[in-house]
Design a protein around this nucleic acid. Structure first.
Length: 102
DNA sequence: TCGAATGACAGCG
DNA sequence: CGCTGTCATTCGA
């Protein structure tokens, strides 16, 4: 399992209605390159976006903000809302409540 | 509040 | 082939 694959494996474990953070993923991957996690999801080999297999839209910042998702992939945020995650101004309201810890 | 660090990939010489 | 810049972040001063 490489770096990227590890990210996807963990991301796939995220249940519906839950989110996780880049920090947690990076921690599980034994790396400190938090950005690399997002980058791995960004350059997802599954396709252009992590659609279907890897729910990258469930991966957010450790601060509770959705991060870069708000800019380009903000539509995915709507998906999160639909799944039951409340987001206000690109920030997750019940962040700790929906935060999925492995 | 701002800069450095960290992993991977594309572009350029 | 090797180096630099960029990116969906995080931490420390």
């Amino acid at each position: 399992m490489g770096f990227n694959e590890g990210v996807w494996e963990l991301a796939k474990r995220i249940p519906k209605g839950r989110v996780t953070t880049y920090k947690i993923l990076a921690g599980k991957l034994r790396t400190k390159a938090y950005r690399a996690v997002g980058n791995a999801l960004n350059r997802n080999p599954h396709g252009f976006l992590c659609s279907g297999k890897v729910p990258c839209h469930r991966v957010v910042k450790s601060t509770g903000e959705v991060g870069g998702f708000a800019h380009r992939t903000k539509k995915k945020i709507k998906m999160l809302k639909k799944e039951g995650i409340k987001i206000r101004k690109n920030k997750i309201e019940d962040f700790e409540n929906v935060l999925f810890r492995f």
